[in-house]
Amino acid sequence: MNSGLLLNGTISFAIMLSSLAFAWVLSRNRNQYNESSKPALFSLIVFWSIVGLTYLPTAARMFCAYLNNQELDAILYFIAAVPFAFVAVPLVFFIIYVITGSERIGEYIAFVFTLIGAAYLAFLYNSGIVGPIVTEWGSIFMINSDAAINLYMMGLFVIPTSMILGLLLLILLQRMPKRIRYRTALPLVAISFVFDFMLTDMIAILDVMQIFARVFVLIGTVLAYLAYFPPITFQEKLGIHEQMNDIQYAELVDPSIEFFSKDKSGNR
């Protein structure tokens, strides 16, 4: 029995707990956001919920590997693959909606990524997996399908990551108050951390790579929480404390990340 597997499972459990808690907090505070921001907010709630649902069976399978139950380990891997396959869907909708302000366009493109995720699952379940390879620090499966891997890399990794980087570049090129830049750039960096390292986690062929990726997923979740609910000391260091507490400023600026969203008339 390897204590490293327990650490791996504990990190996965922490990711699950923190991401689901974050999704719940965002949902609880949804009434604080205006109507034009709610579609993007809802997509973020779905995104963090999917992250949590992916790491719930992932954490459980680490403990199964610790107990040397390889059959249940494999079953839980397939269960975790279901929410993971669709993690790009709310993310793509969020990015498209923030840029265009159009729910319809966001839904169409999100539907395309839903089909990609479904195709990935079909290839995965049809071809099966190789493993598990249980080591001191992790339990690793390898996908036994080139088609699934290609869909994974292009449809679930390269395109969404490029969209995140493009939106981040757009934000950095905009002139805006420091508070707005903080509330937009940091969540995107956090989402990028979580999304990219989740994908790295799923294709990891080394136990160190697997646990390293999960540590960064956890860091990304914490960063996302700090982006939405920064401590006072953090605000003061960044020089955004006065802006966040300025009533006149708050009236002029949408307090959500989705300030780029257009309203129904197309105005920003």
Rank of each mutant, 00 (worst) to 15 (best):
V222C: 07
F212L: 07
A213E: 00
S127C: 13
L151I: 06
A118S: 09
F141M: 06
I140R: 04
L170N: 13
R181N: 02
I203C: 08
S162F: 12
V130W: 00
P230D: 04
I109A: 02
T161D: 12
Y225V: 12
V215D: 01
V189E: 07
I205E: 11
E107T: 15
F157L: 15
P187N: 04
L170W: 13
F141R: 12
Y125T: 14
V215E: 01
L168W: 04
R175E: 15
L173P: 06
P187C: 01
L168E: 07
L218M: 08
T184D: 02
T135L: 11
Y125D: 08
I149E: 05
Y225H: 09
A118Y: 11
A190M: 02
N144C: 06
L199K: 10
L218Q: 00
K178C: 05
S127K: 13
R175M: 08
I133L: 15
F157W: 07
L115R: 01
V112E: 03
A110E: 02
L124F: 04
M142V: 10
S145R: 03
T200C: 05
L218I: 09
L121V: 10
K178V: 12
F111K: 10
F141E: 05
Q174E: 13
L206A: 12
V112M: 10
L206S: 14
L199P: 03
Y108F: 13
V189L: 15
E136V: 08
V217A: 01
T135I: 04
I219Q: 03
I203H: 05
N144Q: 10
T221H: 03
L151F: 13
I140C: 03
Y152H: 09
A147V: 10
F157D: 13
I105Q: 11
D196R: 00
L124V: 00
I133V: 14
L156W: 01
P231R: 00
G106E: 01
L156M: 15
M154E: 00
T114F: 15
V158Q: 02
I219L: 15
F212C: 05
L170K: 13
S162K: 08
N144I: 06
R175G: 08
I191H: 03
V134Y: 06
V208H: 01
A148F: 07
L223I: 11
I180Y: 07
V208K: 09
Y108P: 05
